[in-house]
Design a binder for these strands. Structure first.
Lengths: 190, 190
DNA sequence: GTCTATAGCTTGATAGAC
DNA sequence: GTCTATCAAGCTATAGAC
């Protein structure tokens, strides 16, 4: 049976992600969203009665789920920690388009506290940090050191994405991904 | 003699910087800019006939000058490299408001290639990277290593600013600043 | 569930008085 | 050099047909 919607949720969220990650919350106009998704204004409001803020909020939830199940869950299963971290790095490579795409948490956090998104953004980044801290802990690092290294990994990823965007060269991101296995497991990395 | 302008250039650029670094280019509306600077729309267009794009471009030039003379120039003068790097770190601490302010190059680079700002942004980041690579080179690192470390320093700064903004905790930025002297001078940092 | 049409406000930008 | 008043275009959001 064919889907009732002309545009699947998957397609819509893919395009929604693209618009919000490129333009941020304030820059993501309904015209841009409508054009990207192929859904007219009124159709968007049918799916998201709460308007633009609900679009961003639902997108965050969608990406959160995708992150949790496809990227973070495998990180904390059984097996060699470094191998699992390399697996996460591969998924991050795909998700961030080889360093050519920005982080949604970054671009959505711009513009101050206008929206009620900050709590959700905060929760997302915490879940990610926790997952990386857990695998670092399992690899033998102390709890404190594991958390610190997870935060450093986050800084590496976010920073390299920003530098890649500014310079137009994704190389820093690829290098950052390569450092993750050692950064998150080696007690004497620094 | 009193200045002819009710609002000095210094005051105006300070507020312009605040609006653009918080909201990005697309989110920085003339209403926000007008309110922040205390200048009505028409007055802003008197100073910047090219409109919003010229405001951002002039601001970039202004910040570039400030960066070059107050932050980067001392970096490449005489004296102990580590001391000079610590001096830069203090200036960065002030400029980025202890990690509570975003980087203008980051927020202005959002929204794609709509504007002619990308070249200026690119030039700014290059000058900064070059200055850090130079001091790293002077401290004894090879040219290639010096450049790589300068890029890593940039990633640390940009990444910690993003994480600080997302989490609301400036601690990562303060830690990043502390690592700069060793990162830019120690051949065996990693 | 999607669409056209529209309302009302905000945007970037301009004209002209002082 | 700053202002008020105004413009056309864009914005978010809604009403109602199919």
């Amino acid at each position: 049976m064919m889907p009732l919607n002309k545009v699947s949720d998957q397609q819509m969220f893919d395009q929604l992600l693209e618009v919000f990650r490129v333009h941020g919350y304030e820059g993501a106009s309904l015209s841009l969203i409508s054009e990207a998704t192929g859904l007219k204004r009124a159709s968007l409001y049918h799916r998201f009665p709460g308007g633009k803020e609900e679009m961003a909020k639902s997108l965050l939830e969608h990406v959160d789920e995708l992150f949790a199940t496809e990227i973070l869950a495998p990180l904390n299963e059984s097996g060699d920690p470094k191998t699992r971290i390399r697996q996460m790095a591969r998924h991050l490579d795909a998700f961030y388009q080889g360093g050519r795409g920005s982080c949604l948490l970054d671009t959505l956090s711009l513009g101050g506290t206008n929206t009620g998104l900050l709590k959700d953004i905060h929760a997302s980044i915490s879940a990610w940090t926790d997952a990386m801290a857990t695998v670092a802990r399992e690899s033998g690092l102390s709890a404190a050191k594991a958390r610190r290294r997870a935060e450093e990994a986050l800084v590496q990823i976010q920073g390299s994405l920003v530098v890649a965007r500014i310079t137009g060269d994704p190389a820093p991101f690829m290098r950052a991904l390569k450092t993750l296995p050692d950064l998150l497991t080696d007690p004497d990395y620094h």
